[in-house]
């Protein structure tokens, strides 16, 4: 949940990147980390296996700037995508303010996308959240690969409400900041609504 500290004039929010294994969640964070000025970010922490698969989570704090005298800091997390790490995914969703679902656009990953999205809805519900009400963005990643499903078809399968949808190639950064901006904006707008 959002933490507002009047003494240090800070707003801290938590955003979680969700999606099936190898869809590019960590790559999104890595690109944001590599493209951000050193003073605006903390360390990128990766709790990964020896083969660099996310074991627990990746984390990076990102300071976006000041709104009306308050520093806005977003804590970006990824979850482990592999099916059997569900307990970890549930823990990371605790206190979430906004979610990005990173879909793998490759044809053979369609079932994994659907399963992961279903799992997201279920795990959000377990933490007392409703996907239909929480700030949420759908990212269609890996659009540069040859065997991708047309965006319209993919969106048709994965769209849950009127969430913003962004095509992305996380390895080169296409769509990465658009996605982050969209979810951050929704989180701040939600705060404004109260």
């Amino acid at each position: 949940m959002t933490f507002i500290n009047y003494a240090s004039r800070e707003i801290n929010c938590k955003i979680v990147y969700y999606g099936p294994g190898l869809c590019g969640k960590t790559t999104n964070l890595q690109y944001i980390y590599d493209s951000t000025a050193p003073q605006a970010k903390g360390k990128l922490i990766s709790l990964a296996t020896e083969t660099e698969r996310t074991l627990f989570f990746d984390f990076m704090p990102l300071e976006l700037g000041t709104v009306r005298g308050f520093k806005t800091r977003f804590h970006l997390y990824t979850v482990p995508g592999q099916v059997y790490y569900d307990a970890s995914r549930k823990l990371i969703l605790k206190g979430v303010d906004g979610v990005v679902f990173v879909a793998d656009s490759q044809e053979e990953r369609m079932d994994a996308n659907i399963e992961s999205l279903y799992n997201l809805e279920e795990n959000l519900e377990a933490q007392g959240f409703d996907l239909m009400k929480i700030p949420y963005v759908l990212q269609l990643n890996k659009r540069d690969l040859p065997n991708v499903i047309p965006s319209q078809e993919l969106t048709g399968e994965l769209l849950r409400k009127d969430e913003p949808v962004y095509e992305a190639v996380a390895t080169s950064g296409d769509g990465v900041f658009d996605t982050l901006k969209a979810v951050a904006k929704q989180v701040l707008t939600e705060l404004r609504r109260g």
Partner: peptide
């Protein structure tokens, strides 16, 4: 929506 914010005075 997400949980209500925690506000520290």
């Amino acid at each position: 929506m997400a949980e209500a914010p925690v506000i520290i005075s």
